[in-house]
């Protein structure tokens, strides 16, 4: 839904602050993807396709740490923190609720930064594949990244046999988040 809020200035400010953070964050996912071993061996078309279908999900993982479940606040990448109630007034409440729930579940797994980065790589190459020309190459890339993630996690936590599967169970959550919210209308101010 388009944002509606009494205090016109604050909602406008919030949208601008969101838009200013969002575009660079998308560009950072593109740079991140180019750093994934093997990603740039895919055809340019397949790289673009995976990024178009996976970037929103990678951002959801990345934004997890910005959602503070206890205090019900969200901190944008520019450091500004907003209470959930203020953001609800912008009409994104179902996305916000889903994000709080998702970030609580992922946060509870206590991943290290490098494990989180490898998980984001798996998220990207596990994105929707309609439009992919070389399916085999994408599957091989995905298998390699999942193997690397499993060995990193099991090496660090040999006695925790459930963490890896709990992590993979987040993939369908992300797919749902993506399908429910990435096609929502959002106003962006473009200079």
């Amino acid at each position: 839904a388009c944002p509606v809020s009494g205090a016109e200035r604050t909602s406008q400010e919030i949208w601008e602050s969101f838009s200013q953070c969002f575009t660079p964050a998308v560009k950072e996912v593109v740079e991140f993807a180019k750093g994934i071993p093997g990603f740039q061996e895919l055809s340019q078309q397949d790289q673009v396709m995976l990024l178009k279908s996976g970037t929103f999900q990678v951002l959801m993982v990345r934004f997890c740490t910005l959602f503070n479940a206890e205090e019900r606040t969200v901190t944008f990448l520019n450091g500004q923190t907003y209470p959930l109630s203020t953001l609800r007034a912008l009409g994104m409440s179902s996305l916000l609720d889903a994000m709080f729930e998702f970030s609580e579940k992922l946060g509870s797994l206590g991943l290290e930064p490098d494990e989180m980065a490898l998980f984001m790589a798996v998220v990207l190459v596990s994105a929707d594949r309609s439009g992919i020309s070389d399916m085999r190459a994408v599957e091989q890339l995905q298998e390699g990244l999942i193997r690397a993630l499993r060995s990193l996690i099991t090496r660090r936590r040999p006695d925790d046999t459930t963490l890896f599967s709990k992590l993979l169970l987040r993939l369908p959550d992300l797919r749902t988040l993506n399908n429910l919210h990435s096609d929502k209308l959002l106003a962006f101010r473009i200079d």
Partner: peptide, 25 residues
């Protein structure tokens, strides 16, 4: 003056990605 374009999040992401790859061709 700032132009105000309405688009979906998915379209906004696609737009940025297409621009990036076009620029780095």
């Amino acid at each position: 003056p700032k132009t105000h374009r309405v688009m979906t999040l998915a379209d906004h992401i696609s737009h940025i990605i297409t621009q990036d790859f076009a620029r780095n061709k």
